[in-house]
Simulated scan of single mutants.
Amino acid sequence: MATHLITGASSGIGAALARALYERGDALVLLARNEERAQQLVAVFPDATTLVADLEHPESLRASLGERMPATLDSVLHVAGVVDLGPVSELPAEVWRRTLDVNLAAPAELTRLALPALRATRGRVVFVNSGAGLNASPSWSAYAASKFGLRALADALRAEERGSGVRVTSVFPGRTATPMQQKVHEQEGAEYDEAEWIRPESVVTAVLTALDLPRDADLTDIRVRPGA
């Protein structure tokens, strides 16, 4: 039985991914931002291990997780993220700090803490990035910067861990029908129709393909775009 540590399992792509892995019998370690969210995850995934860890404060992760980090992990799946749009002239420092902490610094610290468990199984780290990690648009500066940084983190980690057997995949979804996308539309002042965008389950298919790939090949960067 494979064991996966997942962030962002409460909604969107993370929830769909946790559900797919849970239904096929894999063991889950789910990170929740607070006790209330942890209890919600327990209700949905009663057999999973649920840990409380605040990604807005990456420096607290070591103390929060402590000795509860599993000895072995087959994957760490970074799905959690935040987005706040606005031009550079209007985005305050606290937005930049929160965005970079949750989207970049927390994945880096969590990966650091999980590496011994990943090396033990020659596991995989998956960073669910974004199309904004490839191209930056007006009003997307903070989010895009965090995702460009996440891509750099993945590339450096892949090179560093090649000898250990730990593999690293970046997934770059286009706009996906999630609560985050609904929030983006609200910030853009646009109507939201989830039927226009990628289904979370389609992104999950890409992630599962990377997880299940035999060791004679690797998937390093996966771009998922809306169909015609």
Score class of each variant (00 low, 15 high):
49 T>L: 11
132 A>H: 14
32 A>K: 05
149 G>K: 07
147 K>M: 07
94 E>H: 14
20 A>S: 13
54 D>V: 05
178 T>C: 10
213 L>F: 01
185 H>W: 02
155 D>F: 00
190 A>Q: 14
179 P>E: 10
131 G>N: 11
197 W>N: 04
32 A>L: 11
36 E>P: 01
36 E>M: 10
139 S>C: 04
188 E>M: 13
183 K>M: 04
68 R>Y: 00
95 V>I: 15
92 P>D: 14
34 N>D: 15
110 L>W: 05
176 T>I: 06
157 L>Y: 09
112 R>A: 12
73 L>P: 09
203 V>S: 02
94 E>Q: 13
105 A>Y: 06
36 E>F: 06
151 R>N: 06
180 M>W: 02
154 A>I: 11
72 T>Q: 15
41 L>Q: 05
2 A>M: 15
132 A>T: 07
88 V>S: 12
45 F>M: 02
216 D>F: 14
215 R>P: 01
201 E>N: 01
217 A>W: 02
185 H>K: 04
57 H>G: 00
89 S>P: 09
4 H>F: 06
133 G>C: 10
5 L>A: 04
157 L>S: 05
132 A>I: 00
204 V>G: 01
209 T>H: 06
45 F>C: 01
124 R>Y: 06
207 V>L: 04
199 R>D: 11
68 R>F: 00
134 L>M: 15
32 A>Q: 08
142 A>T: 09
35 E>H: 11
79 V>N: 06
25 G>H: 08
156 A>V: 14
152 A>S: 15
210 A>P: 11
123 G>A: 09
45 F>A: 01
124 R>P: 03
66 G>M: 12
29 V>K: 01
43 A>I: 00
163 G>H: 11
76 V>K: 02
168 V>D: 07
35 E>T: 13
36 E>Q: 14
139 S>L: 10
55 L>C: 13
28 L>H: 05
146 S>V: 09
219 L>F: 12
144 A>C: 10
70 P>V: 09
218 D>H: 09
160 E>D: 14
214 P>A: 07
80 A>F: 05
179 P>W: 05
59 E>F: 00
194 E>N: 00
107 P>A: 08
52 V>S: 05
136 A>L: 12
110 L>C: 11
89 S>W: 12
78 H>Y: 04
61 L>C: 07
74 D>C: 09
80 A>G: 08
116 P>V: 07
195 A>L: 06
128 V>C: 03
166 V>W: 03
137 S>R: 15
112 R>M: 05
157 L>G: 04
2 A>D: 12
125 V>H: 03
47 D>L: 04
33 R>H: 14
134 L>C: 08
7 T>F: 02
46 P>W: 01
219 L>E: 01
79 V>A: 02
217 A>Q: 13
22 Y>I: 00
55 L>N: 08
3 T>Q: 15
23 E>M: 11
102 V>Y: 04
177 A>Q: 00
130 S>K: 05
99 T>R: 08
25 G>A: 10
133 G>M: 09
64 S>I: 03
221 D>L: 03
20 A>P: 03
89 S>L: 14
